[in-house]
């Protein structure tokens, strides 16, 4: 924690960055994002196991970008998101300084982003045991059981789009659900509309999701929507051998192909 504050102060003092995006104590024992522009305020920054929000979502937020060059406290999923955003040309590498946090919770020193990149090559991806278990359980179900599970789980969704807004990779200003000529997804939050919306969201994150799990965490109704995108991440790794966010120059999985992609399901 001290090392994060020290580094943040150093960056702000030397004007290498104009804002540090980190975590601070919020209300009711919650933590929340902090935007520190004043070096004397760095003591607000904290880091502990409660800090799970994917802060990269702010790298593409207009009003935050507007503050200037950004320093960001980044755990492994956040670092992977930054790589994804750079690959997709949403973030300019020269506008970001990463205050990396390793698996042990200690500050990592990245003189530049290429060092972060090589760190990530070796880093492990961990999803929580709870999520792993839930996914295994789902995979063992029959088709009918899976269908019932999802159509019921998604039925309560009222389309507040917290899953979409919390996801740093859902940065489109006009989402596919808002494109209404034609209306692809029923706008209303009914069983059918919800099912198709979450299917669309998962598909649009296929090969892009970094399994941070923030969409599920953000859902006010506790619908495990992150299990959908995490599954897509797992599958694209299995099918195409790539993990998203491990390089700043990742080629998008769905806009590339290999001649030997398996096609044993095609007659």
């Amino acid at each position: 924690m001290e090392s994060i504050r020290k580094k943040a102060k150093e960056l702000l003092d030397s004007k290498q960055v104009q804002v540090i995006i980190g975590y601070e104590n919020g209300t009711s024992n919650k933590v929340r994002a902090a935007f520190i522009t004043d070096p004397t305020q760095v003591d607000r920054l904290i880091y502990d196991e409660r800090c799970t929000q994917n802060l990269a979502v702010y790298l593409v937020k207009h009003e935050v970008k507007h503050l200037g060059k950004m320093g960001i406290v980044a755990t492994i999923p956040v670092m992977r998101t930054i790589n994804m955003l750079i690959s997709e040309e949403q973030v300019k590498p020269e506008n970001v300084v990463v205050l990396g946090i390793g698996e042990d919770g200690k500050l990592l020193d990245f003189p530049d982003l290429t060092v972060m990149e090589s760190f990530l090559q070796k880093a492990k991806i961990e999803i929580t045991a709870k999520d792993k278990e839930a996914m295994e359980k789902l995979k063992k179900m029959t088709t009918q059981e899976k269908f019932d599970y999802w159509s019921n789980a998604l039925e309560t969704c009222f389309k507040c789009y917290a899953c979409r807004s919390s996801c740093p990779l859902c940065y489109c200003t006009r989402c596919a659900v808002e494109c209404n000529q034609p209306q692809w997804i029923p706008v209303q939050a009914n069983k059918n509309g919800n099912y198709e919306w979450h299917m669309l969201r998962a598909m649009h994150l296929a090969g892009r999701c970094v399994s941070c799990g923030d969409c599920g965490r953000a859902c006010p109704l506790d619908i495990p929507v992150h299990l959908l995108t995490m599954h897509m991440a797992e599958e694209s790794k299995r099918l195409f051998g790539v993990d998203s966010g491990f390089s700043m120059k990742m080629e998008s999985v769905l806009s590339n192909y290999k001649l030997d992609d398996k096609d044993n399901f095609i007659q």
Binding site: R32, A33, A34, F35, V57, Y58, K61, E63, V64, F158, K159, C160, Y161, A162, R164, S165, S166, P186, V187, Q188, A218, P220
Partner: peptide
């Protein structure tokens, strides 16, 4: 600055009444 612009607050709010009109 930290608001991500989702509608969670409005959708759980007992007094928020903004709506949209759509054809299906």
């Amino acid at each position: 600055l930290r608001c991500i612009g989702c509608g969670a607050c409005a959708f759980v709010c007992p007094a928020c009444a903004c709506f949209d009109i759509q054809d299906e």
